[in-house]
Write a protein that binds this DNA or RNA. Structure first.
Length: 454
RNA sequence: GUGGUUGUAGCUCAGUUGGUUAGAGCGUCGGUUUGUGGUACCGAAAGUCGUGGGUUCGAGCCCCAUCUUCCACCCCA
């Protein structure tokens, strides 16, 4: 049998794990600096917790777990003979793999509401699974790094999350990322102005193509989707939406003045933009983008998305937003939440493409003891125990192999020092220490050896 | 879910209009060198050509199916 792993999954080599750990630790330490605390939730949840929370498309992408035992006997004969996959699935599968970290978190908040002090700031770094078709930067098993606050409606949280994004990407050396920001209330306002709530998605999708296909074709597409000419006329400012954030806000304000909700959205966005303007960012760019319509099903206020630096072809490396009623589905009303997610695997690919990993060192021993046989090994092991007690990473070559082979091993693993102990050294109670980079070698007693390797 | 793409040794890849026993480089292992690595030279092992069918006197090469890889759409991290 040829060994293989399921599509969309990956093995990670020691180097890759070292690099991933570096990214993860950078993100976690930033989370903690901002006052977030870690929680973890199970890798699988009850299907009822997950199903219906991500829209129809999302339900299709959730990995379902087959019930144990004789599960078919409990399935309805009619559904089986009709080959009704959807209905059969709900009868033979009660559990499903986690699809994101936000919904399990909402479940957690409701379930533990009496133990939680609000506002609750939690972070979570765990894998999630999606039955998607893999492609560039898209996997079926990948890590999300989420930070959310629940129980505060303050817009300062939005400001904090933008600062958090900026902090993390600056620390990773990933400069010139673009943090796009929008507000769901502005989208609702636009829908109100064009008089077509249900056409909103078609509208933003078409508008998003503006710089690719040009104004005429975008208008043609909108007309084709059933958006009236009059409506398009009303939102003309969006077609010349190129200025600074403040200019964009001004034209949005003008355009949405008849919509109460839209005006509220502009106000919220203006607060965030002004605050960031005042506080400054280290390396990221903040950009108002009205075509940003991600996760439209549950975001109610701010919407975020982070784009990799220009020139790197990669989908978003982070996203998030404000959801006023996520815990409502689980029976806890009026708990507003806002949060962001970092896509670990995509950040990895971007850092790799830009060659930003050179600083990450593989964990490896500092010194290798050559194995010369039984007597010498015992002498070496006693020394190794002492070195390890001094926190010096040391190991013994396990077999009495040829010198050449043992030296070669040290070379391949890039172990910087080799200790040679044969009968000569034992006689003099010393150690021959060889520097594998310079080739130099000297004899030391144990005390001196520790000093040299410290 | 739709469309395209890929698969030959551990890795990267050659392989002619279908024609004897499928090759190379790197890596691995052994030797030149049984107390000294990187270099050099010599040698060896390693492939049911993704899998299953089919066409043919004959298939790595042609046809069908299936799995896999990568990519685009959709959606998303």
């Amino acid at each position: 049998m040829k060994p293989s792993i399921p599509k969309g999954t990956r093995d990670f080599s020691p180097t890759e794990v070292a690099n991933r750990t570096y990214i993860m630790n950078t993100i976690k330490s930033a989370f903690e600096t901002f006052g977030f605390q870690p929680i973890e939730t199970p890798s699988f949840e009850n299907s009822s917790t997950l199903m219906g929370k991500y829209g129809e498309e999302g339900d299709r992408l959730i990995f379902k777990i087959l019930n144990s035992g004789d599960f078919l006997s409990k399935a309805d004969e009619n559904y089986l003979s009709d080959k009704d996959s959807l209905k059969v699935t709900s009868q033979i599968s009660e559990k499903a793999l986690r699809y994101d970290l936000t919904v399990p978190f909402a479940r957690y908040v409701v379930q533990h509401q009496n133990e939680i002090t609000f506002p609750f700031k939690r972070y979570q770094v765990q894998p999630v699974w999606r039955a998607d078709r893999p492609q560039k930067g898209r996997f079926r098993e990948f890590y999300q790094c989420d930070a959310d606050v629940v129980g505060s409606k303050s817009l300062w949280q939005e400001v904090e999350f933008i600062k958090l994004y900026d902090t993390v990407f600056s620390k990773l050396g990933l400069l010139q990322t673009t943090i796009k920001i929008n507000n769901r209330k502005i989208l609702s306002g636009i829908a109100e102005v064009i008089g077509a709530q249900e056409k909103l998605i078609d509208f933003t999708v078409a508008l998003d193509k503006l710089d690719k296909i040009g104004k005429e074709k975008v208008e043609a597409e909108m007309l084709a989707k059933g958006i009236s000419e009059k409506a398009i006329e009303k939102v003309q400012p969006l077609f010349n939406f190129t200025g600074s954030n403040l200019e964009k806000l001004a034209s949005l304000e003008q355009m949405l003045q008849t919509s109460k909700e839209g005006t509220k959205g502009v106000e919220e966005l203006r607060f965030v933009i002004n605050s960031i303007e005042e506080l400054g960012l280290q390396s990221a760019n903040l950009q108002v983008d009205v075509t940003l319509a991600r996760g439209l099903n549950y975001y109610t206020g701010a919407i975020f998305e982070v784009e990799a630096p220009k020139g790197v072809k990669m989908g978003s490396i982070g996203g998030g937003g404000r959801y006023d009623d996520l815990t409502g589905i689980f029976g806890l009303k009026d708990v507003s939440g806002v949060g962001v997610s970092f896509g670990l695997d995509r950040i990895y690919l971007v850092l790799e493409e830009l060659g930003l990993f050179k600083t990450v060192d593989l964990p490896k021993p500092k010194v290798l003891f050559v194995n010369f046989g039984e007597n010498e090994t015992l002498y070496a092991m006693k020394a190794i125990a002492k070195l390890r007690a001094e926190n010096i990473k040391s190991e013994l070559f396990p077999d009495n192999a040829k010198m050449k082979k043992q030296m070669n091993y040290a070379n391949k693993r890039e172990i910087p020092f080799v200790v040679i102990v044969g009968s000569r050294e034992i006689e003099n109670q010393e150690f021959t220490l060889k520097n594998m980079i310079s080739g130099e070698q000297n004899n030391y007693n144990l005390e001196e050896l520790i000093k040299e390797l410290k």
